[in-house]
């Protein structure tokens, strides 16, 4: 089950210099045989399949994302990147295989889904802010009602987060009054307010005007530096090259190639990867 291809993927990762992964590959393999996943495996996917009717969107996706790792998922549109990332917090339901987040397996059990969702923050392409609530209320809604914080505590935290994403002065505005870049930064703050252990980004800059992309990427980079585990679906090659620890390349619902940015951009092995890179670079 813990197939050889996963091992080889693990071998490909582990960029030196960051020193995030202190567990060697063999240790991880041993630990998994006892538990659901190794202690520092944040997301583990094993042979995940997903169909939309007759169309197979994901086929046999297996991958592991370690704590504090930044993984960027690349691939042409329609390759299943978004579907995969949405399966991880159960916005889509996979039909077979295992998805384990922070040691909790995603199943139909409602409590597991709730637990995982409160550990996983998600940022969407279309921001999906709540248009009838102010920025402040957007951020504090879940901390107050799900995390059961007091209002003053939640507002204090929200202000700190807004400060972090660079727009503390917009707290009392409504999403409709903000620019796209500002809205996406509010969305990041909203996800962070739940103090997640993993952040999922589903094409966070694809709906933005070019001049606003940078402000969002800057926030994401800053987040990466603080040691957040991140999984990012994006078309921003610059971001992938600079920030990612590992790049996963997908096509037709399958993982085609996995590697460090260096490896991926300079010496890709697979023909499909080369073709993709020749089109986007």
């Amino acid at each position: 089950m813990w197939g050889s291809d996963s091992d080889s993927r693990d071998a490909k990762q582990g960029r030196d210099g960051k020193g995030k992964h202190d567990v060697s590959i063999s240790d991880a393999t041993v630990a998994v045989s006892d538990e659901l996943a190794a202690r520092d495996d944040m997301i583990v996917c094993r042979e995940v399949d997903k169909w939309f009717g007759d169309f197979q969107a994901l086929s046999g996706i297996s991958a592991t994302i370690k704590e504090q790792e930044i993984v960027v998922v690349l691939g042409p549109s329609g390759s299943g990147k978004s579907t995969w990332i949405r399966c991880i917090n159960r916005l889509e339901v996979h039909q077979s295989g295992q998805i384990i987040v922070d040691g909790i397996e995603l199943s139909n059990d409602l409590r597991n889904i709730e637990k995982i969702r409160s550990e996983v923050g998600m940022v969407f392409q279309q921001f999906n802010l709540f248009p009838h609530l102010t920025v402040m209320d957007n951020i504090t809604l879940a901390p107050i009602w799900v995390r059961r914080k007091s209002r003053s505590e939640a507002e204090e935290q929200a202000l700190a987060l807004l400060e972090r994403v660079g727009i503390p002065e917009q707290a009392q505005k409504f999403p409709g009054q903000l620019s796209g870049g500002q809205q996406q930064r509010v969305a990041i703050a909203r996800a962070l307010a739940m103090e997640p252990r993993v952040m999922l980004f589903d094409e966070p800059t694809s709906a933005l005007d070019p001049e606003m992309i940078k402000e969002v990427l800057d926030v994401m980079e800053e987040l990466a530096r603080t040691g957040m585990t991140m999984m990012v679906v994006t078309h921003e090659m610059g971001f992938a090259r600079e920030v990612a620890d590992r790049i996963i390349f997908m096509e037709d619902g399958e993982i085609v190639e996995v590697g460090t940015p260096e490896h991926f951009f300079t010496e890709p092995e697979e023909e499909r990867t080369k073709l993709f890179l020749s089109q986007v670079l």
Binding site: N89, R90, L91, E114, R117, S118, V120, G121, M122, F124, Q126, N128, L129, F130, L133, L141, A142, W145, V146, A187, R190, A191, A193, M194
Partner: peptide
Amino acid sequence: GQYEASDAVGLSTSLRTTF
């Protein structure tokens, strides 16, 4: 997207509906 965003921040069905 509104449903998905509510789910993603962990709101239960009743909280999502109410707020």
